[in-house]
Amino acid sequence: MKGNIYTLFYAAVLGTVCAMVLTFAASFTKPYKDANAKAEERKNILLALKISIPEKASSEKLLEIYKDNVQEQQRGSIKTYVYSPSDDNKGAIAMEFAGPGLWGPIKGFLALNPEITKIKGITFYEQEETPGLGGEIVKPTFRDKFVGLMIRDETGKPGIIIKNGGEVAANKVDGISGATMTCDKVQEMLNEAIRSIVEEKQ
């Protein structure tokens, strides 16, 4: 009986000590982690809006650039991030999109021109696609294909196509060979985002 009480006591003390150490560590690192997550999000918005940022920018620097250039605006039910510089050609409006990917959720930002007719830029900040195949969506070579893409087809219906081969169209880009599933899913979530913002505009 004595041994049992000692065992319980030992477990309680060890558990408490471990929990305290972890709580302390978590609360100590929380501000840093939050800042990192925020900077990550901001960085992706900036990238989508095609605002140039220095290559190895610190998180403070990123937040500063963001504050100077981007205005957050509510557009109906959609939160948008608007960039309106003096050079009118560069203006853009960004919004978040999300959806299921092949292995896990995909999240990113989609930037359109202020008139909402063309894509300005696109970024993915959360994805777990197959490295080397679907994971290629984060590469600039794939993302740059979207720049200047029309968001409506010839009949004026909103939506884009990501597909290999087939007829060339103003709203179509080539997909990644070997990653058809990922491309289909990305196409679906982008189209949903495009539809929602087009409806909000009307």
Binding site: L14, G15, C18, V21, L22, A25, T29, Y32, K33, N36
Partner: peptide
């Protein structure tokens, strides 16, 4: 319990 504590410490450090 001890190992987990150290692992989470390191993980938190990396995240921060």
């Amino acid at each position: 319990a001890i190992i987990a504590t150290f692992v989470i410490l390191f993980d938190q450090f990396l995240k921060a």
